[in-house]
């Protein structure tokens, strides 16, 4: 049985008014334990609405979300429990810090789960390790941290609940290139070590290509593609028509392949491209 099954899910904003707008239109897919999925799509394609339905923040107009085979809206009064299992980190989460100290802020989720003080303490330490927050920062006020540190603290607050599924909406927006790399690597390591399912909503095709195994493509409220990252990014024309792109490196290798150099289409990273080109040159006896 799949960890999460999304069946025929739709969401309509302002239903029955002149402003009626279908944000998610009959979407179905399943996620397995340990999947690392990138969600891409143009602005307004329905990505954020979709992920908000996955943790019960908004209730679908029709269709169901099954977590471990159980409809998350079976017992509406217990929907909070779902939010401990499916953790959602919003865009610019640093604006949501509110506690007196970083430690209290990260502990907010686990405290509400009713865990013991020792367990909470351990979870705060583990979560701050995962996102690379130095221990001495835990005593500080969140408002004395730098932008990047605040973002890490906010992400740690969700990781501390140890959700089965972690959803991050544009976690790297506004970070400098190294900041992006470091944060992505930490998220990747979290995924590897815990074996948890991670969903990454992103406008950066490069980021999705680098860390995700699968990519889910939304277009005008519809699910257009859901496949391995390589298969998705080998369909450059189709993505372009949806206002998306492929990573620059993928596009370079595709053009060379079309020009007659025997290289693999859908190459996702610079490292892989270097390997392919040097292997080709060695085979040809030119390197």
């Amino acid at each position: 049985m799949s960890l999460l099954q999304v069946q025929d899910l739709s969401y309509v904003y302002s239903q029955g008014t002149p402003f009626e707008n279908t944000a998610v239109d009959h979407v179905s897919f399943s996620l397995e334990k340990g999947d690392f999925v990138g969600i891409i799509g143009h602005t307004g394609s329905g990505k954020s609405t979709l992920v908000q339905m996955l943790n019960g923040l908004i209730r679908p107009t029709s269709g169901t979300v099954l977590l471990d085979g159980v409809n998350i809206w079976d017992k509406p009064k217990e929907i909070r429990k779902i939010r401990f299992k499916v953790g959602l980190v919003f865009q610019y989460p640093e604006y949501q810090l509110f506690e007196e100290t970083v430690e209290k802020d990260i502990a907010f989720g686990p405290t509400n789960m009713g865990l013991s003080p020792d367990e909470i303490k351990q979870r705060v330490i583990d979560a701050s390790n995962f996102v690379g927050l130095k221990p001495e920062l835990l005593e500080k006020s969140p408002f004395d941290l730098s932008g990047g540190e605040k973002r890490r603290a906010a992400i740690a607050g969700v990781i501390a609940m140890d959700p089965d599924i972690l959803i991050l909406d544009e976690p790297c927006a506004g970070l400098d290139p190294l900041g992006r790399d470091v944060l992505l690597t930490q998220i990747y390591r979290y995924h590897e070590q815990r074996g948890n399912t991670v969903l990454l909503v992103s406008h950066s095709m490069e980021d999705v290509a680098t860390v995700c195994d699968k990519a889910l493509v939304m277009n005008h409220a519809h699910l257009e593609m859901f496949d391995t990252t390589q298969k998705v990014f080998s369909q450059g024309e189709k993505l372009r028509a949806m206002g998306l792109r492929v990573p620059q490196i993928t596009s370079i290798i595709d053009s060379l392949s079309v020009a007659g150099v025997p290289l693999e289409k859908g190459t996702l990273t610079v490292e892989r491209a270097v390997e392919e080109i040097t292997e080709y040159l060695k085979r040809e006896g030119r390197l």
Partner: peptide, 15 residues
């Protein structure tokens, strides 16, 4: 300085 170069540049630099 925590910056990057375009992937096109990086590819050729590594090659």
């Amino acid at each position: 300085h925590r910056l990057d170069v375009p992937q096109a540049t990086e590819l050729c630099h590594k090659l």
